[in-house]
Nucleic acid binder design. Structure first.
Lengths: 238, 238
DNA sequence: GACTGGTTTTGCGCTAACGCAAACACCTGT
DNA sequence: ACAGGTGTTTGCGTTAGCGCAAAACCAGTC
């Protein structure tokens, strides 16, 4: 079990307000692990044996419906926690987590959570903040899905991805991990085909540049306009 | 400031694991208040001055978009907390809370939260559970909106409402507070008109009985079937 | 360097659901 | 009893986006 440098994680929201020695103690309980691109960290329905902190890479959390459709719940970026099933009172993972890039995680056995929280109440309040933030984001998503049309939703999704995991290039912002049209469809509640059409359109207009599982925003500002623009603008309430 | 009977609230998840005297101390910090039908408990964007526990009645939490559309986030039932902005790191309420029935709440000034949590760490973990549960529910909603069609979504919404706030009658289950087609539309991401058409259809078939802001499920079981039935069943993945 | 499997593009027909409009029921207060 | 307002129903034309199908594309692999 490799020792984790506290300085690498000390600034994370999860550990806000902790002293170095406390941090050390918490980290001692975790093991680190690598997951190669396209391997599962855990599967939906599986017993929640651990909770995780992503140190490196990107992880996709997705839910599968009884009929087999998949919905992307979120993309986890470096520094974020995931698989918190235990903390929110679940014994099984509610989604599947897959590394979309070679990734490195810290994993705490689920059983350590009650003990850690008892000893370090700040963990609970910090986690409450992050779960609360996710709840907000998910509500935003519901609102978008209810009120906006597909093109706006895709625009928002790209902007969010760019913000979260964008790599600045001189000719734009590149989304920093492999992402397919299918993935974007599953984030926005539409189909692969519709996403493809929309992105093709944008590429014509020079707003983006894209290839196989690769998207570069060339004109982020114009995409913001698209995202905020309402169909038949000045639009009335539903 | 009226004294609140601890026995009325002791069993609530929020207070799980607390001793009567602790409970007493927590309750001492709260004031109780009444809100008449159709009055706002707080408005979206307003400074989060308090957080609440609903003792009696029903409260609707809804978000308003920049363009004026409203989306119902959830209906709060007796015993549930709401307006937890502070706990999840917000200084303003992210939604508007309106009493849909004459309602009674307990209200804690936002400023008491840090102190209470510090003294009673169990509050944080209990709240984490409930916020986690809400996150799950919201994810379910996203999945439904992405994969199901309007009729199924409306069926699910009614079943959830019936479960949460259903009053058992001999000829069915009545949703225990005034709810309009508009409200249901805002819960399911569709329009008033479409909801009306669907409910009319169901009424023809004898599945429900309904009137002005009033819905009775006469054949809950058949509605479950509707909710689970997939268009062109055996349906393929998106 | 051809093969193979996943990804993307594009065309075309179809339909679920929207949007608008108008009429209608019901409840409340005067 | 009546008026006014809020909620509901229903018809009708329109359309955004789905679903299917087929082709083109691309990146590794053998």
């Amino acid at each position: 079990m490799a020792k984790v440098d506290t300085s690498l994680v000390a600034h994370l929201p999860l550990f806000a307000g902790f002293k170095p020695e406390e941090l050390e103690e918490i980290l001692r309980e975790a093991r680190s692990a690598r997951y190669a691109k396209n391997t599962a960290v855990f599967e939906q329905g599986e017993d929640a044996h651990s909770f995780f902190l992503l140190l490196h890479g990107h992880v996709r959390a997705a839910k599968t419906t009884p009929t087999g459709e998949q919905i992307v719940v979120r993309y986890v970026s470096t520094g974020e926690t995931f698989g918190l099933a235990m903390a929110i009172g679940l014994t099984q993972y509610p989604a599947t987590a897959t590394a979309v890039d070679d990734s490195v995680v810290l994993a705490w056995p689920t059983g350590t959570w009650p003990r850690l929280v008892q000893k370090f109440p700040g963990l609970a309040t910090n986690t409450l903040q992050t779960v609360g933030a996710r709840l907000q984001e998910t509500h935003t998503r519901v609102v978008e899905m209810s009120t906006q049309q597909v093109e706006q939703r895709v625009a928002h999704a790209l902007l969010r991805l760019a913000k979260q995991s964008g790599k600045k290039l001189d000719h734009g912002i590149e989304i920093d991990f492999p992402i397919s049209r299918q993935d974007i469809a599953q984030m926005t509640g539409t189909t692969l085909h519709t996403v493809s059409r929309i992105l093709s359109g944008w590429e014509q207009l020079g707003l983006i540049e894209s290839g196989r599982q690769r998207i570069i925003l060339r004109e982020p500002h114009k995409i913001v306009v698209l995202a905020e623009q309402h169909p038949e603008d000045g639009g009335a309430a539903r």
